[in-house]
């Protein structure tokens, strides 16, 4: 197996001692088939144990190792060194406050996620003896793609709108709202519309589409938002132009 000397340019920030961040260079020998996360782990193990970053699964499932790699939001465990011939610049995800080195605080996303109620809401709950809510494969396909989200927040780092307008609910949370709206077992769309159809919801999106490009698990949040814009527009017509609010 081929080894290569990898040069990393890593953003460092210690809130206890630093007033602002700076970049530190590391050179570390890595196998060509390693990912950026392996290189960071080798730096931490052999060169600098003070370097901080989040990671857990190493297989693009947990969504913890999101960072800017050469300026693009990516999962470090999903980014192969062989695709980066020169120095690799590693920075914390943009649009989120930096806690320390490559660790960011996702609190804003977590708060917005709760606001869209990403769980199944039932108006009429059937007793457990009546069994489960059954669903056909076709009904499952309507939302399955959006259920693949791993909450890595790469789409928030990619979204210029979220960067400019922090009250925007943002791609992942809205795509998850769409996921539950599309679920045949769910009856909570009206409740979610109170957030989705506001200015902070889908209407802040200008359809740049970067969210869908960076998603490591091929969710397409941009399509979810467009579909919700169309549905919300029909709601608006019903509410404002039809007699009795279309009810």
């Amino acid at each position: 197996m081929k080894e290569r000397l990898i040069r990393l340019e890593v953003f460092r920030y210690n809130p206890d001692t630093d007033t602002e961040g700076h970049y530190q260079h590391y050179e570390v020998s890595c196998l060509e088939e390693w990912v950026v996360l392996d290189a960071l782990n080798k730096v931490k193990e052999t060169l600098d144990p003070t370097l901080n970053f989040r990671w857990s699964c190493h297989m693009a499932v947990c969504g913890s190792c999101g960072m800017m790699i050469n300026g693009e939001p990516r999962l470090a465990c999903h980014t192969f060194l062989r695709n980066y011939p020169g120095t690799i610049r590693v920075e914390p995800l943009v649009h989120f406050p930096v806690e320390r080195d490559l660790v960011t605080a996702p609190d804003d996303f977590m708060e917005k996620l709760k606001r869209v109620k990403p769980w199944i809401i039932r108006k009429d709950k059937q007793p457990i003896e009546q069994g489960e809510y059954r669903q056909t494969p076709k009904e499952l396909l309507r939302f399955r793609q959006y259920a693949m989200c791993i909450n890595c927040t790469l789409c928030y780092a990619a979204c210029p709108e979220y960067g400019l307008t922090r009250h925007f609910i943002g791609p992942a949370a809205l795509a998850l709202a769409h996921r539950y709206n599309q679920d045949s077992r769910d009856q909570g769309r009206d409740e979610r519309q109170e957030v989705v159809a506001t200015k902070e919801g889908v209407w802040e999106c200008t359809f740049v589409g970067a969210c869908s490009e960076v998603c490591p698990v091929h969710v397409d949040p941009a399509s979810a938002l467009q579909q919700m814009k169309i549905a919300s527009s029909f709601d608006w017509i019903k509410e404002h132009l039809l007699p009795g609010g279309g009810k």
Partner: peptide, 15 residues
């Protein structure tokens, strides 16, 4: 927060 009236300008945009 009130629902947005953006559909007024967005619908003809989409069309």
């Amino acid at each position: 927060m009130a629902k947005s009236n953006k559909p007024v300008v967005w619908f003809p945009f989409a069309a």
